[in-house]
Design a protein around this nucleic acid. Structure first.
Lengths: 243, 243
DNA sequence: CGTTTAATTGAAAGCAGTCAAACTATGTGG
DNA sequence: CCACATAGTTTGACTGCTTTCAATTAAACG
């Protein structure tokens, strides 16, 4: 298989491969899809609610979110996509997107026609199982977010977000004392957690004061992972990491 | 096709048929699955988070919810299932359920082995497309709930819930002045909206006082549907009602 | 008809929001 | 490399929505 820098669709194969072993024929079919690499800038939309959806893709760098706005224009972020995540899979089966997909930072995506990926998934059982599992895992993460926003206070909510982000970007090993970049503004964090930027700021200070995390700019270090996880009521089950 | 009282699996065919025209052979395969009809009482679990999931089903009467609890035992309802809705489709592709499926009222469900429905969906393109569309619509409803809980105040949140429930149970025609039964306690409503029962009570009174709805016991009548929809910031797009 | 469950009400407390200002980084052009 | 502009963070004071707690009333149920 080509390296991602030779054919960026290799990232798609990798992603699907996390969920099920993909046979060579399917790999070949995926790698042969026509694709477009596109750079997005902060705020750019890849998919617009209510438009027509005929493309999907994969994020290769930067951060993208799914979001919706209420009638007053307040934004609610529904999910944060990290490099390697698929984008707009909904378009394989639904015509009209029910949410926006928007760049949070400058980022790079690889776009393919939904039709083609759908055709491949219709042909190869394993591919469609992998895609189904990805779609269901996305739904599971939405559920956890509902619990997070509906039944946890700001402290637990933010702690939970940090736990999830750390596990998704860096895996489950040696998290204590690990430090990582969180390239989001406090306003974006607020939009992701149903809070205001001001309150995010105060809550970050709270977590810092309680010796749960340490911060230097956008860099965050887990000072006491176990306790943070406890406070966050975090478990990885909903991420469905099992193969 | 048999009537649902002859073979309750006809309800499954109906449900899938809403999403895509199901060929006769597939209908026959569905109707021939072995099934169990089960009565559940309020609070009973059909699927338990963390257990093993090997069955799915359809709700034929009563109300069921998907829910999770935080570490303090507070319940958050993630979705409300009404008669005709599928249950536990997640089990077709994921082994371990990430949420509970619990009876809200006494209800009747028809259960089939996930394996069999999956086999049918592997055999018939249309069936699997219908199922995918159902799964994606469920995800879309989760997203709207996140927006509802994260970015709408109690009044709009409750109004939105009532709008959704009315449309789902009774369709989109002649809603103004329509009255319907909402067989949920105020505590259950609170769990569905990330609020307390007390506040649900006060918010219901608010909607009543503002002449948006009228209440007699669990019966609710829409006095001013247009304004309620406005306040709720409600649109049906996220329900993906299009065929 | 008594017992339990649900709905309602009131008072008080608290978490998070709002508003506004100050401060700090970041980035751009000269 | 500095000066300025802009975006983001931090802080304080105040407001307000929602929760909590507790008591009362009403409804549902056996």
């Amino acid at each position: 298989m080509p390296r991602p820098d030779e054919n960026p669709l290799a990232r798609v194969v990798e992603k699907l491969g996390e969920r099920a072993p993909i046979p060579d024929k399917a790999i070949a079919a995926i790698l042969q899809m026509p694709y477009v690499v596109k750079q997005l800038y902060r705020g750019d939309l890849f998919v617009r609610e209510g438009a027509t959806a005929d493309k999907c893709g994969i994020l290769t760098s930067g951060l993208i979110v799914c979001q919706k706005k209420n009638c007053e224009g307040d934004r609610q972020i529904l999910s944060v996509k990290i490099p390697g995540d698929m984008l707009g899979l909904q378009s394989l089966y639904l015509e009209t997107p029910d949410h926006n997909i928007q760049a949070l930072t400058r980022c790079r995506i690889v776009i393919v026609p939904s039709e083609l990926l759908k055709a491949i998934s219709d042909e190869f059982v394993v591919v469609r199982h992998a895609i189904s599992r990805i779609m269901l895992t996305e739904a599971s993460m939405l559920r956890e977010l509902i619990l997070n926003i509906g039944r946890r206070d700001a402290r637990a909510r933010l702690a939970h977000f940090l736990c999830e982000f750390a596990v998704r970007t860096g895996g489950t090993d040696k998290i204590n004392n690990r430090s990582f970049e969180l390239p989001m503004t406090q306003e974006q964090l607020g939009d992701a957690l149903g809070l205001t930027a001001v309150h995010i700021n105060r809550t970050l200070q709270l977590l810092t004061r309680d010796n749960l995390i340490a911060r230097v700019g956008k860099n965050i270090r887990f000072v006491d992972w176990d306790r943070l996880q406890d406070i966050a009521d975090f478990s990885t089950r909903y991420l469905h990491l099992e193969k």
